[in-house]
Write a protein that binds this DNA or RNA. Structure first.
Lengths: 170, 170
DNA sequence: CGAAACTGATTGCATATCGCAACTGGTGTA
DNA sequence: TACACCAGTTGCGATATGCAATCAGTTTCG
């Protein structure tokens, strides 16, 4: 039984916004899972487990999904095509992490030894700026919350750029 | 002997910018320490230990300072007024976390039960936007890296607002 | 000088979490 | 019926955390 740094009943360390954000997201896996749901559109347990380039363990994944659902960042609903499967979706708070992830990616690109193919999405996201983030967030709301189709697809562009970059260096 | 999730010799989980950023910052204390150096201008071990509203333990603080110095986010120099003291300063990579912290604070303010007084700085930082962040970063470079005095002081404004808010609710 | 207070840390220990691998019980497919 | 696949759990050794006590060197002050 994995329990976590911030269990629902534990008192908060402080009322500071940065601290409280860290109490939810401040570990080595939570944002990785959100990233994979967001940019990789991985919606099932197995997708997230097998598609994880960082190699998340199944118990950690199970625990993080549980926690993130409890924290209101993800929602889970049954998959109608498979009785056992659950479909995980981003909730609005997670969608509002787009600017955080964009800046975090930009920082990583500048200050850590990133690989070229994996950095291209961060670069496009950074260069697109707040306008692109907003478009992306609209798209995520459509995909995950069922709001009207915004028409454009930032995600497709990001994925295409990544695939192109991957093909190039292969 | 505390060692840490990302020791210098351990291979990286992946070359993804977000992952690599998380390998440096993805724990419950690293960004708290950076926040306190940045916004609280705490430059000594004891300042950080005693001033910590979240109550960081001394061994964790010692370990994080060591790690952050090793990662190039902080620098440490001897204090000329006290042979034993070290003065910790933000290095450029840490200063470039300002937008990340601003967004993270904004997110926390929106989606977690923040306290009013501690949220005011996040609010001002959010409302100020990128222009204010740049001014703040120039100020941090002056304070921590010894670049020319930019004249303005964002930090003073943030601190004053916090003090005012604290006095109000007292 | 010498005691007391303060400095940046370190140590020991109980508890919690992580990472890994094996496993469980249920489901879809042929 | 057999088999591959599914979400998720369990057990366990290694590692990290939280807490209190402690350490040795430094400064202060009588």
């Amino acid at each position: 039984m994995d329990s976590q740094p911030t269990s629902p009943d534990r008192p908060h360390r402080s009322g500071c916004p940065i601290n409280l954000a860290l109490e939810v997201l401040g570990d080595r896996w939570s944002l990785i899972v959100i990233r994979d749901v967001m940019f990789g559109n991985r919606r099932h347990f197995r997708d997230l487990l097998n598609g994880s380039i960082e190699g998340i363990a199944s118990n950690i994944l199970a625990d993080r999904l549980k926690r993130l659902v409890a924290a209101g960042l993800l929602t889970r609903r049954d998959d109608p095509t498979h009785r056992q499967k659950g479909i995980y979706s981003l909730a609005e708070p997670a969608i509002q992490l787009v600017p955080v992830l964009a800046h975090l990616g930009a920082w990583g690109r500048r200050h850590t030894p990133v690989s070229r193919d994996l950095a291209i999405r961060a670069q496009l996201l950074e260069e697109g700026g707040p306008a692109l983030w907003e478009a992306f967030m609209r798209e995520l709301r459509h995909q995950h919350l069922g709001t009207p189709d915004p028409g454009t697809s930032v995600l497709a562009d990001l994925t295409a750029a990544y695939e192109a970059m991957r093909g190039e260096s292969a």
